[in-house]
Computed example of a mutant assay.
Amino acid sequence: MSSSRRVAVVTGANKGIGYAIVRGLCKQFDGDVILTARNEGNGQEAIKKLNGEGLKPMFHQLDLDDVGSIDRIKDFLQKTYTGIDILVNNAGIAFKMAATEPFSQQAEITVATNFWGTLNVCKGLFPLLKPHARVVNVSSMASQYAAKKCSDEMKSRFIAPDLDQAKVEQLMTEFVNSAKDGSYEKKGWCQSAYGCSKIGVTLLSFAQQKEFDKDSRADIIVNACCPGYVDTDMSSHKGTKTIDQGADTPLYLALLPPNTTSPKGNFVSDRKIQTWP
């Protein structure tokens, strides 16, 4: 029997910004909060720490790179709830500056998780979104920096009025293929595997909102955001923000009140809509 309780799902949440987003939702959202992580042990450890603060999130395993794992959480959510109220796509990876893997490999692996993995979660879970649901795709200012370094011709594709999900998928496929054959700079891309993967996440968010504007379910809002430069493993702990400060904008977007008109289909940092690119 599915529960009419509201539910929020956060990907990549066993540490860092995702963990802080779960913590914030447990305090501010009236419903169940599901912390997901690729590794069950790490996820359960995070739950235990939050329980120590008197918070009661639930755990479900989720690996963006495994379609079977996405199917399993979809089945669980379908059986347990009448639909999803909040989805925060936070999971992502980045190679370190000192990484020795060739750029072609970094591009393929980074885009596989950050873009295709996020897209696959959306494909699996978007049919479960309820009217008034909120989707937050955690992107990065790196997407903006990378976009600005791309050629003018490439930039024009990023802001094309007819940009849809298929065109975003095509852009990401082209980026990885050009990284593999060494033609990426000639084709107008810049040398940032992480930045270009996050261009995909930001553009995907714009395209998804266009689709939801035509959806029969009212008031579903998707935004992309940059949490800022946060002290996490990903920044090698060089970031200046705490994880709770990094979680502020994602939480703000996840908890936007019903019938919000702005931000909606935007790229947001420090709670402000950013010009793109």
Rank of each mutant, 00 (worst) to 15 (best):
P161V: 01
I221W: 08
K49Y: 05
S140W: 03
G12I: 04
V230Y: 05
N42V: 07
Y194P: 05
G43Y: 02
G124A: 06
P277V: 11
A218S: 12
D63K: 07
D75K: 15
G246P: 04
M234H: 08
F267S: 06
K15F: 09
I159A: 11
E108Q: 14
D231W: 07
W276C: 12
S140L: 06
S3H: 13
L163Q: 05
I221R: 06
V136N: 03
L125N: 00
K79Q: 12
I17H: 02
K214C: 10
T240L: 10
I273K: 11
W276T: 06
P258K: 15
T82D: 11
G43A: 09
N89T: 09
A8Q: 03
G228A: 02
C226R: 03
G24I: 00
V10R: 00
I84C: 08
R72M: 09
K56S: 14
T80W: 01
L253P: 04
K149V: 02
V33A: 03
K48Q: 14
S2R: 14
S143L: 08
Q274F: 09
K167G: 01
G43L: 10
A99Q: 14
Y81G: 00
W189G: 10
Q106G: 11
N120W: 00
T232R: 04
A107L: 09
Q209C: 06
G31R: 04
R38F: 05
D30Q: 14
L35W: 05
P131E: 15
M97C: 10
F103N: 13
Q165P: 01
F103Y: 15
G239A: 02
T202F: 05
D30I: 04
A13S: 15
S140N: 03
F126L: 12
G182P: 10
L62A: 02
A146C: 14
F76H: 08
I21K: 01
K27R: 15
E101T: 14
V138D: 00
F115T: 05
W189N: 12
I47F: 07
Q170L: 14
G228Y: 05
I93R: 11
A247V: 10
K155Q: 15
T232Q: 07
E153Q: 10
S104W: 08
Q208F: 11
C190P: 12
D30V: 01
S197C: 10
G18A: 01
G31Q: 09
A98C: 09
N51P: 00
A8F: 02
M141T: 08
N39Q: 12
M58I: 10
R72G: 05
A247D: 06
K96A: 15
L87V: 01
L62F: 06
V10S: 00
G124T: 01
S192N: 14
